[in-house]
Computed example of a mutant assay.
Amino acid sequence: MGKMLGIKVPKKEAEKIRKQLLELNLLDVNFKIKHQNDFVIFPIKERIKGFEIIETTFEKATKRPHSYREVVNIPSELQPLLPSSFDIIGDIAIIELPEELISHGKNIGKAILKVHKHIKAVFAKGSKVSGEYRVRELLHLAGENRTEAIHRENGIRLKLDVAKVYFSPRLATERMRVFERAKEGEVVFDMFAGVGPYSILLAKKVKMVFACDVNPIAIRYLEENKKLNKVENLIPILGDVRKVAGQVKADRVIMNLPKFAHEFLKEAMISVRKGGVIHYYGFSHEENLFEEHLEKIEKVAEELGKNVKVLEKRKVRPYAPYQFNIAIDFSVF
Results as ranks from 00 to 15, higher is better:
V272R: 03
V277E: 15
E298K: 14
K32N: 05
K63M: 08
V248K: 14
A172P: 02
I326K: 05
L257N: 10
A268H: 06
T56W: 13
K110A: 14
F39M: 01
G275Y: 08
E184V: 00
Y133A: 06
G126D: 11
Q20D: 11
R170K: 11
P80S: 12
S76L: 03
V165F: 11
I108Q: 05
I270L: 09
G246W: 12
E99Q: 11
L82E: 08
E224Q: 08
E292M: 12
Y322V: 10
E184R: 14
A261C: 04
R273E: 03
E52T: 15
H66D: 05
M176D: 03
L26V: 04
G6D: 08
I108E: 03
I95S: 00
G196R: 10
L294G: 01
L228F: 12
S76K: 09
I217K: 14
L97A: 02
P10W: 01
K106T: 07
I94Y: 00
F324V: 04
L138H: 14
A261N: 01
S84G: 07
K274G: 15
E298R: 15
E55V: 03
V72G: 00
L22Q: 03
H66A: 02
R152S: 09
L141K: 04
E70V: 15
E186M: 14
F264T: 11
V71M: 01
G109A: 06
A245M: 07
I235Y: 08
I88R: 03
L228V: 03
F31T: 15
N215M: 08
E15L: 14
D240E: 09
L101D: 04
P321S: 03
V253Y: 15
L22D: 10
F260M: 09
I44M: 06
S85F: 01
V72S: 00
K120V: 00
K296Q: 05
R152Y: 14
M208T: 15
E184D: 10
